[in-house]
Design a protein around this nucleic acid. Structure first.
Length: 336
DNA sequence: ATAATTTGACCGCC
DNA sequence: GGCGGTCAAATTAT
């Protein structure tokens, strides 16, 4: 873990802490009859997002460890194939290239990559709501694949230089499964968020943000939650119950009829989340965090494959989430 | 008017 | 040359 920079480490802790807080909040909601189903769904989704991002940081640190120390935000390792390189570099792309290729002289970059399999309601297009705001920039028919693949990049690529991208492709086997391949970390949340309407920077206040995610019994929590991270859920309805998580197993799958979602409203204030806070706060929560089980066990999102992690012999936990529900947080491999 | 999507062209890699 | 990934002009949506 020395390979992760202090910065990432803080983000990691913050992400995990946030996930824990959200889980606590969800726990409260589960005991409150007035709590709407949607509110709970939103919480679940946010929890998953927090953990996804934390895990991606872990993965990223591993990738960096392969070739260098110090935890630069952009590493240099990658799986052998030229998975990440854009053949034709636009401005925002090669600014990274130029920076990253210095001193390392190895491979270009190692943006973290991971994939998810997400079940969506039949008829839902590629609309995959994950809390970020994406902009489609391409679509391709893929050889041997029934469905074309959509290419998305972070909406804030140009405004904030966020290089996160994802590819979404409907599974051949099961059209209700979307295979979502993420690439790169979202850096758009690092700077002040610009309000698109006012153009003003609105740097979220750490204390306020954590107030938001703390239980507030007599306020309209749903609104706060939605403000915190506005999104709809296109997939998960039964996510509160442990699933067997094998999406290709039709017997264990969520019944699509019960999963009617519109998958609309994206935008997303995940950026105001405390997750990417640079504040070294909440580190003290870690010990208790590690004592809790229940990580990712209730998701029908199936994380698959992480080639980078595997290449360095560390088992990237995503692959396990769909197999068993016990993420090895107590494994010293993951925490010093 | 601005932002997002669509879609054919383009590019580098295998 | 084919393929996957990206660009960017045209189109559509907000």
């Amino acid at each position: 873990m020395e390979n992760i920079s202090d910065f990432d480490m803080k983000n990691l802790f913050n992400g995990l802490t946030e996930g824990r807080e959200l889980a606590k909040q969800l726990q409260i909601h589960l005991n409150v009859s007035s709590s709407s189903h949607k509110t709970r769904e939103v919480l679940v989704e946010k929890i998953l997002n927090s953990y996804d991002q934390a895990l991606s940081i872990l993965n990223y640190g591993v990738a960096c460890a392969e070739t260098q120390q110090g935890g630069l935000r952009i590493g240099t390792s990658d799986s052998p194939r030229s998975n990440n390189e854009s053949p034709r570099s636009d401005g925002s792309d090669h600014e990274f290239k130029d920076q990253d290729t210095k001193e390392g002289s190895k491979k270009r970059k190692a943006m973290p990559r991971w994939t998810q399999k997400v079940q969506v309601a039949p008829g839902t297009g590629e609309a995959h709501v994950d809390g970020y705001s994406w902009r489609k920039y391409g679509q391709k028919d893929i050889l041997g694949a029934t469905y074309s693949r959509g290419y998305y990049r972070c909406t804030h690529r140009h405004s904030r230089g966020c290089l996160a991208t994802k590819q979404v492709q409907r599974s051949d086997d099961d059209p209700t499964i979307l295979e979502v391949a993420y690439k790169g970390m979202h850096t758009c949340s690092l700077g002040a968020k610009k309000d698109p309407k006012t153009g003003m920077d609105q740097e979220p206040n750490i204390a306020e943000k954590h107030q938001q995610i703390l239980p507030q019994p007599h306020q309209n929590q749903p609104e706060l939650l939605l403000d915190f991270q506005t999104k709809d859920l296109d997939t998960k309805n039964e996510t509160l119950q442990p699933l067997n998580n094998n999406p290709s197993s039709s017997s264990s799958r969520i019944n699509p009829e019960n999963d009617v979602f519109s998958a609309e409203m994206m935008d997303t204030d995940i950026y105001s989340s405390s997750f990417m806070s640079t504040e070294p706060n909440y580190l003290t929560f870690l010990p208790s965090l590690l004592m809790n089980g229940d990580y990712g066990s209730s998701s029908n999102i199936v994380h698959t494959s992480e080639s980078d992690a595997q290449t360095v012999g560390i088992d990237y936990p995503f692959g396990q989430l769909d197999l068993d529900s016990n993420f090895p947080f107590d494994n010293p491999t993951y925490f010093p």
